[in-house]
Design a protein around this nucleic acid. Sequence first.
DNA 1: CTGACTTTGTCACCAACGTGTCACAGAATT
DNA 2: AATTCTGTGACACGTTGGTGACAAAGTCAG
Lengths: 230, 230
Amino acid sequence: MANILLVEDDPDINAAFRLALSQRGHSVAGCFLGGEGVALATEVPGPDLVVLDLMLPDLDGREVCRRIRAVSQIPIIMMTARGDDADVVLGLESGADDYVVKPVEPYLLDARIRALLRRSSLPVAPAGESDVVTSGALRLDRKSLVTSINGEAVPLTATETRLLLELSKHPGQVRSREQLLRDVWGTDYLNESRMVDASIQRLRSKVERDPSQPKIIATVRGFGYRFDLQ
Amino acid sequence: MANILLVEDDPDINAAFRLALSQRGHSVAGCFLGGEGVALATEVPGPDLVVLDLMLPDLDGREVCRRIRAVSQIPIIMMTARGDDADVVLGLESGADDYVVKPVEPYLLDARIRALLRRSSLPVAPAGESDVVTSGALRLDRKSLVTSINGEAVPLTATETRLLLELSKHPGQVRSREQLLRDVWGTDYLNESRMVDASIQRLRSKVERDPSQPKIIATVRGFGYRFDLQ
DNA sequence: CTGACTTTGTCACCAACGTGTCACAGAATT
DNA sequence: AATTCTGTGACACGTTGGTGACAAAGTCAG
């Protein structure tokens, strides 16, 4: 289903949710500290969604949320025992997409996860629970971040890898330059930049058999680029 | 802030929320029936977001939700007095993005509205499950933006794709040149222009079997054009 | 700390394509 | 028959994206 990061300091609750969400088909990574959470959520390749407890020993959940939001648009669901309306509002305003109050039934959390993933246009049910993307001769291992062509490793730079990852997260869907700028570079405003074009070109030169006739990363004139499975 | 459609049959609650959301800077339209709700949510220019009561006299709120979702990816917040977890799950599964339980503090609803709008404004390409339009031999994939006839890809330009997308959002309904200008070109005032006609013609020449006898995009003399399902 | 190397953002240029406009013909409506 | 509306083809301009060069920033070994 999805790769979920659970940030929750209570070991029992942490374990319980990891189990419950796993049973519902998700792949769950858990951590106990806010600092860890920020690191894990923003690393490459990050999870598809974050479930974030508000009460953490080191950092306030809202601070965690803000730090993640500073560099990433990843979907975030906040979770807390405090059900006060004002808390909910503060949580949402610090950048969370949804807010649930403990105790939460796992199947309810799952429903909200699905709704949010649907809205975020992430595939809710990828066919195989595989962390490897392939398109033609290209093969990208999302965990080790090793890219290879015909089994031979291709040395991609960090930016190129992020770009390819981001494109491959939405196979068959057009991604605009704005989306790519946001998700790969974390900047929102560089609309005039040719950064995306330049990096796409560098990526193509390493990955495409014939970069002038790209098969894997298609140009969709007027819209953006599209990663095509083959 | 945003144009919001409120579908709520209780006149008191309806009026109260309209007032409260207006005071928070939104522009609110209210209606009392599910049928109306579907019509208003899918017309052009539609609202930015729908707040939908579950209990309506004519249609079940979930049915309203499904009908809207059949043609639109507009953000939907469901609202109901029934706070049962199972209801929430059913609501989310019928396509809603969020679910709040009455009584709701207006500022809480506002916070959820903002969170949802923030998330929804991100993608350019709309997300969702039924993202393929077909009419006769024509097939348009809204995510990959690939148009094909009898399975063979037809290269459309950006404007042609946008035009076809816009027309196909409202199958069987006449769209005026003004509406198309606004939704495809983003201009409001070029009423004297023949741009729409010219682009319709270019689109037909690529998409219609016999452009002089158009089956997919019909001319409605004096009004505009209509996309017909077949 | 230094110098070499790699990575990355910016820029300028060009070719190709897309697109708005126009004029006129043809069709529908009155 | 007159009038209004729509289809159609031509054309020139603007936009878009590919490309290579270059400079700034980052990385790393010695």
